[in-house]
Structures are given as structure tokens and as C-alpha cells.
Computed example of a mutant assay.
Amino acid sequence: MSDQVLSVTVVFAPAQRQLWEVTLKLPLGSTIRQAIDASGWQANFPEAVLEPAGAGVWGRKAPLDQPLQDQDRVEIWRGLTVDPKVARRERFNKQGARGAGLFAQRRAGAKSGY
């Protein structure tokens, strides 16, 4: 790899079980915002909105003006469609008290808590 060029991957999941991925060669000192712009993400997904906390590097939230390093993976995140607390509450109500919790899946005849 040349000292003046970075190889960066930009990924976005437009829906469940779908992945859009593009690998770019960018100049040294490029930022997350520049990588997203160069990837053509906005042209491919015009309805998607880049939220202030909607991107990161290797699964960690990062500001859009953060400089990138070689072999970084820029991830563009979608907004949540449902509140995680509400989803957990609904799952619990659906399963019932006996089907939820740490020890819900125990072998037959086992003591409670083991």
C-alpha cells in the first residue's frame, strides 16, 4: 500500500439481511464524511438520512470529521425503528414469565437456578 493512499471500506445495511459495501482508495488524511461522500451512498439511497451519530469505524461511534486509517471499515447506521425497551417488554409479555429470563432454558429435573 502506498504511503499516500488509504484503502477504506464503507458499508450500509438498508434493511435486515441486506448489505451494501464498497471499497475505496482515498488520499491520506481523509475523514469519515469524505469516505461516505466518495462512496456514492447518498446517490444509491436517496431516502436515507445520515444522522449525527449515525456512523462509526469498526462498530465504534466516531465523529464525521475523524481522520481514517488504512483498512478502516466505515459503517453507516440506520435509525432505530422501535424503542429497545418497548421491544423487550413485548417479547417478555409474549413469552410469559416462565419462558423468559436467565434460567428459562434448563434441563428436565434440574434444580431451580442451575
Results as ranks from 00 to 15, higher is better:
residue 108 A to K: 15
residue 60 R to E: 09
residue 64 L to E: 12
residue 16 Q to Y: 13
residue 88 R to E: 06
residue 102 L to H: 08
residue 49 V to H: 00
residue 55 A to H: 04
residue 2 S to A: 07
residue 59 G to K: 10
residue 61 K to M: 05
residue 36 I to L: 01
residue 51 E to Y: 06
residue 42 Q to W: 06
residue 29 G to M: 01
residue 28 L to A: 10
residue 32 I to L: 06
residue 4 Q to L: 14
residue 88 R to P: 00
residue 58 W to E: 06
residue 56 G to W: 08
residue 78 R to I: 03
residue 35 A to F: 00
residue 30 S to R: 01
residue 41 W to C: 06
residue 108 A to I: 13
residue 48 A to V: 03
residue 32 I to H: 03
residue 53 A to S: 14
residue 73 R to K: 14
residue 76 I to V: 08
residue 102 L to I: 10
residue 45 F to N: 09
residue 73 R to W: 03
residue 50 L to S: 07
residue 113 G to R: 09
residue 54 G to I: 03
residue 102 L to W: 06
residue 3 D to M: 11
residue 84 P to T: 03
residue 100 A to N: 08
residue 26 L to K: 00
residue 36 I to D: 12
residue 74 V to Q: 12
residue 63 P to E: 09
residue 113 G to A: 07
residue 5 V to K: 01
residue 47 E to G: 12
residue 51 E to M: 12
residue 86 V to N: 11
residue 79 G to N: 11
residue 112 S to Q: 15
residue 52 P to A: 05
residue 1 M to Q: 08
residue 106 R to I: 09
residue 100 A to S: 14
residue 111 K to V: 10
residue 36 I to F: 04
residue 33 R to A: 13
residue 70 D to P: 00
residue 13 A to H: 05
residue 3 D to F: 13
residue 98 R to P: 08
residue 24 L to T: 03
residue 7 S to N: 10
residue 19 L to Y: 03
residue 1 M to I: 04
residue 47 E to Q: 11
residue 20 W to C: 13
residue 35 A to T: 07
residue 96 G to H: 02
residue 92 F to W: 13
residue 87 A to W: 00
